[in-house]
Design a protein around this nucleic acid. Structure first.
Lengths: 345, 345
DNA sequence: TTGAAAGCGCTAACAG
DNA sequence: CTGTTAGCGCTTTCAA
């Protein structure tokens, strides 16, 4: 690889002049500049990132903190990563994939101590998250995909849960449903701190209330068996429910099986929708399920973008964006069974 | 961040001695070494990667070339990436996620010119791949997850397709099946160069022949509709077939629908298995499908590992590993319908 | 408008 | 066994 010195020699100028010409750091005579640029082109010169970073203290490398895969891990996280990498690339940055293990904070300390990264992108943020706390304290620039319980001062991109629930409820109400249920993730070590589960639960209850729909929100399921069981309990306790929104793909599998066993059909006897799952997953089902698809790629892109903004524009007010989900209507949505009796209640 | 000079001052030695003590580059008196180590610990010293890389020409950063998502993209690629990142981390390396766009070679030229990465991990390798050709020519260390048509001299980790097909056929033969079909991916701009599709097709034919099973291998499907249609044609032309292996998840959806419409049941009337799909996907189906699960994480780990080996051990013979798939038997496998008539042929 | 010189933090000869 | 010196490739004063 040719260095700046080679370029300078070939253009018969000093290294500092070559540097200035190529970076526009200070005025350089037009003719000189042209000579330098041509020399650089002829040599196929690429500035060495390490040397540049060593003096400028900026590497244009971002780290994406990658949690060890818990239960459900998949397309969504994938899209965060690829979208973030692409957004970074478009702005001349690089993305380092940084897996986490048992001691995230220690690893963060190590990672940032290397002098290798300018900032950190945090995903799978928990409501109380030691990583973001440490980053804030250490003064390391970062942004979140998702958000903590108190994200006021922190840059983040997250799903607009309020709007998501409103869209879902509007969809169901528009079909004529008067009563719905929502199966949240099962309570576990993870989901207790999992923002999407908590926010979705709260927002669905609120949205249903606001729209005047009957609402059953106390059932939870994260596996096929739990889904099956929750559905049985739902039907037994709340026969008036005609529409069901489910957070977990696996739980939906169980629900569908239970529906079939009971001799019911979707969507004739039950409108079923998947919340925060991808359309690709929804197509695996039969019938193809209606889905509220998370804007994963958009969030990844935004997360990287706002981190770069912060890095370049210095301080300023927090950058925060909430993005709605996309409602993909499948073949599992229909008018409620027995609409008359429902209306007569 | 404290520098090596700070450490040296605190330990009252020269910088070079501190460096030597911390890296074990040359003998240092035990007492001196202890002083230095203590000073480093007290200061929380972390060697600066950039400075080190600038002189040593080694950054311990690997780039993972990430193709723009074509049609089917998902868990598998995700697992390559995370596993590679973890393997790298365990050996003190970092993984840079490097998305590709329209001109992979130009981007590669840029990426490697930066002096930022020591080597490149290539995934989604095509049978004839301009990227690996360029890398080989440019002398950039790299390894492949997958392999080209002529991978003899190149480090790679790939699926053992021969064994995969043999395992699948043995599973079916063991259940008593005498005749099977295989639905490959539809021929497209992509799959024409897609190693797994080509290799799987060839190996299934060979394995079936070797085991004395009837074999229908000329049907292809990559979508639900194509799957449905292929299945109809299969039944019409080859009624003796009792077992079917499918490459595409989407195609399997169509097959399952067509099976049901015909009044058949899985596995009573047809044994169905998914080839190169994950168990998590298989569980979305009802019944849970038998799957040949690709060793994605293992491949990612191996790919990163052999690249690092090459980087550290210098040259040597090519490192190549073929890893078998895992056969996960689901509820879609059973003895063939009408076993007598089959045996009587 | 340009060049010379210093230095980012580290490693690697080479003396002592 | 340890310290001094040089230099990786670049940016950035400071003079000219």
């Amino acid at each position: 690889m040719s260095s700046l010195r080679d370029v300078a020699e070939r253009a018969r100028v000093a290294v500092s002049t070559a540097s200035a010409a190529l970076n526009g750091t200070r005025p350089v005579a037009a003719a000189t500049k042209r000579r330098i640029e041509q020399a650089a082109a002829e040599l196929g010169y690429r500035p060495n990132v390490l040397a540049r970073g060593l003096v400028s203290k900026r590497t244009r490398i971002l780290a994406l903190l990658f949690p060890a895969p818990h239960s459900g891990f998949g397309l969504t996280e994938m899209q965060f990563a690829t979208a973030a990498a692409e957004a970074a690339k478009e702005r001349g940055y690089h993305l380092l994939l940084s897996p986490e293990h048992d001691d995230p904070v220690e690893e963060l300390r190590y990672l940032t101590g290397l002098g290798l990264v300018d900032g950190v992108l945090v995903m799978e943020v928990k409501l109380a998250d030691e990583r973001t706390e440490w980053l804030a304290e250490a003064g390391v620039p970062f942004s979140m995909i998702g958000r903590t319980g108190e994200p006021d001062a922190v840059d983040h991109a997250d799903i607009d849960f309020t709007r998501m629930a409103a869209d879902a409820v509007a969809h169901l109400a528009g079909l004529g449903h008067r009563s719905m249920a929502f199966f949240n993730h099962a309570i576990g070590a993870y989901s207790a701190q999992y923002g999407p589960a908590i926010r979705a639960g709260a927002e669905f209850a609120a949205a249903a209330g606001e729209a005047g729909l009957g609402y059953v929100g106390d059932l939870r399921a994260s596996t096929a068996d739990e889904g099956r069981e929750a559905f049985e309990r739902l039907v037994a306790a709340h026969p008036e429910v005609t529409a069901l929104a489910v957070m977990s793909d696996q739980a939906a599998v169980g629900v569908i099986a239970a529906v079939a066993e009971r001799g019911w059909q979707i969507p004739r006897d039950l409108t079923l929708m998947l919340v925060l799952s991808s359309a690709r997953v929804a197509e695996m089902f039969h019938p193809r399920l209606t889905t509220l698809e998370p804007p994963s790629a958009e969030l990844g892109r935004l997360g990287a973008g706002m981190l770069i903004d912060r890095l370049e524009d210095g301080d300023g007010e927090p950058r925060q964006r909430l993005v709605p989900c996309r409602l993909v209507v499948g073949d599992s949505s229909a008018t409620p069974r027995n609409p008359e009796s429902e209306a007569a209640r």
